[in-house]
Computed example of a mutant assay.
Amino acid sequence: MLRAREAALLLACLLTPASLLAAPTDPSPAEHPPEDDDARAKAEAQAAAQAFAAGDYQAAIDHYNSAMSLRPAPKLYYNLGVCHQRLSLTAETPAGRTQQRDLAIENYNAYLEQNPRAEDRFEVADTIRELGGEPVTMPALIEPVFELDGASDGDGDGDGDGENENENHGQDAPANIDEPHEPDEPTGAPPPEPTHGRIAGALTLGYSPRLSAATAIDAPALIGLEIQAGGFVGPRRRLLLAGHTSLQSGVALPADDLAFVALSLGLLIEQTFVLGRARDVALFGVGGLVAYTGQSVNTREDVPPPLCSVDRGSQVASRSGLLLAPRAEFSLLLGAQRRSMLGLHLQPSVAIFGDGPSGATCSEGVTPWTNLGVRRRWQFQVLAGLGYGFRF
């Protein structure tokens, strides 16, 4: 009897499905959802816009291509065309300029092919022609698209169902998709060419505490004229190196004391930043001026010279030295190509002078400057100016 039970138990085990005898296993971990391509594409487009605003067009192209691989959109082709057009203006070799122009034409045409009924299709086509290319041929580039109210099947009975609307225009309407990024440059307007140099002039008003305190000199305020001319250097042409000269004269009402004149000649170094996303709107610059400067005090017709003077005709005192000045500038850019500038600048400065020549009539240890009440060799001055310039 026992042997029969053992045999039955063995037979039951052999007939039991293997799946029931197998040890339970942990369920496989849930798969992570795929990354949101739309969000990544928009992030790439935003990074491209920032690079474009900073003038790094190659980085903008890389980000736009990344956005295109994640979320294709017609206006990304337009943005790529703008970037390549900008690079064609800054390429150092003719072959590089030609290559960038061809890429700009290719992307502009891709934009038209993907979005044939775009409102800016005629302007984009004109830009392609200006670059030396030929826009794609399609009815949307030949005549405007007119929206038909009611009927779209061409029989004018007003009861069409809209199925033949695309036949009237020769192509399907583009899909209404949400592009990650709008164009940075106004459509159809060629981007301004890079600037290589600048010429500017300004009227200035200055104040120096030491000169103002010298009662024998008419210099409570200083009016002047400055001129600068130079070129932009660097890969983005944002660093200005310019020759700078200025002429200042003391002004007082009434002018009944000695006249003051100052002249400086030096080098201006300024880092410029262009403001504006859609197009250049303003220019902000920070830098500094290093200059040789000279000052002189002269007599007037009705003002006799002091006893201690250099005795050089009408000149009473003179000295020369080194001027160091930080400088900040803000200018509005004017004109279709943003070449003209109307701006303000602020320039505090410190100048260090020698004693200057003495005179035979001066006492020992006395110079013409100390005799006039200017007892120290260094001089602080703050200057503000309003000027006009032209970038070329």
Rank of each mutant, 00 (worst) to 15 (best):
A255P: 08
D256K: 04
P235K: 15
L267K: 01
V281N: 14
T245I: 14
G234W: 14
L253N: 14
R277V: 05
L268M: 12
V281I: 09
L263R: 11
A282R: 08
G250H: 08
P254D: 07
L239M: 15
G250K: 09
V233C: 09
T272S: 15
P254K: 11
R236A: 09
L239Q: 01
L275K: 00
R277D: 12
V286H: 06
L247V: 15
L275N: 03
F273W: 14
D257R: 15
L265Q: 07
L283D: 04
G276K: 03
P235Q: 13
G250M: 11
V281A: 14
A259F: 03
Q271N: 08
I269T: 15
R237W: 03
L275S: 05
R279H: 12
F284S: 07
G243Q: 03
G231D: 10
P254L: 09
R236V: 02
G234K: 10
A242Q: 04
L283K: 04
H244E: 12
L268Q: 11
R279T: 06
V274E: 12
V281P: 00
A262V: 11
A252Q: 12
G276C: 01
V281L: 13
F273T: 12
L240S: 08
H244D: 14
L239I: 06
Q248H: 13
G234Y: 10
L275M: 01
G243P: 03
G230P: 11
L253G: 14
F232G: 15
L258T: 02
F284H: 03
L265Y: 07
T272K: 09
G230T: 11
V286R: 09
F260Q: 10
F273R: 12
L265C: 08
L263E: 12
L253W: 05
R277F: 02
D280Y: 05
R237F: 06
V286L: 10
L253S: 14
A282P: 01
G285E: 01
L239K: 03
Q248K: 08
S264G: 10
D280H: 08
G230N: 11
V261Q: 15
A278W: 06
L253V: 15
L239N: 06
G285T: 09
G250W: 09
L247N: 09
P254S: 11
I269G: 10
L247S: 11
V251D: 06
L241Q: 00
T272I: 00
L283Y: 00
I269D: 00
L267P: 01
Q248S: 14
A282S: 10
T272C: 07
A262T: 13
L263N: 10
G243S: 07
Q271D: 11
V251K: 09
D257N: 15
L267C: 04
G243L: 07
R277T: 07
I269W: 00
P254H: 10
R277P: 00
H244C: 02
S246W: 02
F284E: 00
L258W: 04
L258M: 06
A252S: 15
G285S: 13
F273M: 00
V233K: 06
P254R: 08
A255E: 12
V286D: 02
L247R: 13
F232M: 13
L268F: 00
A282W: 09
L258Q: 04
P235G: 10
T272Q: 11
L267Y: 01
A278D: 07
P235W: 01
P254C: 13
A262R: 14
L268A: 00
S264I: 05
L265I: 05
